[in-house]
């Protein structure tokens, strides 16, 4: 496998970074980076770390990074997680240190502990902390319950002062969304599977509406909805499918859509195949609605989507 870290890869312009990923020869990983400097979304680091954890440490080849980049990679824990040695000693952190370094989570109790410990690291207001905790919990639990990923979930997050936003990336190298969703629903492509996984009430654990006693099929819908109401980016990438919720302009309605393809989005069905699932989310803090207001919007869409889908299956009278 080969992955190249470009100058810039944030959710708005992440497509070329993903298209540049070469999944061939999965037993080895080569990491290269732009010669001058790099500035990337945490999702890019989570992807690289997840790939690295899936191969033997002696099969990882990493170019010598330029000093400004290596500082960032060391600070975010990339080199440590991949057992890549670095001569650099970090003397100082950023003043506030508002980031969560790369973290691997493999068990439910680990996740609970992590959520408790991560909030103080980002110095968030209580309402913002609820939103972040919610997103991390739902996304990581999805990995733990459905992904069958030996390395679990790999995530990191960072606060960006200029945009006053938190950016989060979570990646796994498990079975992917199509394998999970097609246990109970029909999906011909990875992108179709992503579409189903983002719809409320659809889970790979049962073909029935309402889910099972343990799974409602609503986790990803909630996350996409949080991004949509806050007018933020959200991406999901699995197999060769890629979906990006685009930012809404302030003039557009905040009304939520049950079908992710009805939202303002871009999508691709021919990306380099990612064995597993990757999710990236931005939370712009200036425009983060109070969490309970987000729930009002979600409530209407969630119930009506289920009602609409049930109606689609009603038997119709035959008029002759």
């Amino acid at each position: 496998m080969r992955i190249h870290i470009p100058n810039s890869a944030f959710l708005g312009n992440i497509d070329p970074f993903i298209r540049g990923f070469d999944p061939s020869s999965p037993e080895a990983l080569e990491i290269t980076a732009n010669d001058k400097w790099t500035s990337v979304h945490p999702v890019a680091l989570s992807m690289i770390a997840a790939l690295g954890l899936a191969v033997k440490p002696d099969r990882i080849r990493c170019q010598r990074f330029e000093a400004r980049s290596v500082h960032y990679f060391v600070r975010m824990g990339l080199l440590k997680m991949l057992n890549i040695s670095s001569d650099m000693v970090i003397q100082e952190h950023e003043p506030a240190g508002r980031f969560i370094p790369l973290t691997q989570i493999r068990a439910s109790a680990e996740l609970t502990r992590f959520i408790t410990e991560m909030i103080p690291l980002l110095h968030l207001e209580p309402e913002q902390a609820k939103t972040l905790g919610y997103i991390v919990s739902e996304l990581v639990r999805n990995v733990l319950e459905h992904a069958e990923a030996p390395s679990g979930a790999v995530l990191c997050a960072q606060y960006y002062k200029k945009s006053n936003s938190i950016r989060i990336g979570i990646a796994d190298t498990g079975c992917g969304i199509k394998a999970t969703i097609t246990r109970a629903h029909r999906a011909g492509t990875d992108l179709e599977a992503i579409r189903l996984a983002l719809m409320p009430g659809i889970t790979g654990t049962t073909p029935k509406e309402g889910g099972t006693e343990q799974n409602a099929g609503a986790g990803l819908f909630f996350i996409k909805s949080i991004a949509s109401v806050n007018r933020d980016f959200f991406i999901i990438y699995s197999g060769s499918g890629f979906y990006k919720l685009l930012k809404k302009s302030p003039a557009r309605s905040r009304r939520l859509k049950a079908d992710p393809f009805a939202d303002r989005h871009s999508a691709g069905a021919d990306m380099p195949s990612w064995k597993g699932t990757v999710v990236g989310v931005d939370i712009t803090l200036d425009q983060t609605e109070e969490f309970s207001l987000l729930l009002d919007a979600i409530r209407d869409t969630y119930s009506s989507a289920v009602r609409e889908r049930r109606k689609e299956r009603y038997k119709r009278p035959r008029f002759t």
């Binding site: 509406e209 729930l295 409530r299 119930s303």
Partner: peptide, 19 residues
């Protein structure tokens, strides 16, 4: 609190719609 009330209401509504 308000947040918890809303989450519970969402789940209860959803289950009654779905089942």
């Amino acid at each position: 609190n308000d947040t918890v009330k809303k989450i519970i209401t969402i789940v209860v509504d959803y289950m009654q719609e779905g089942t």
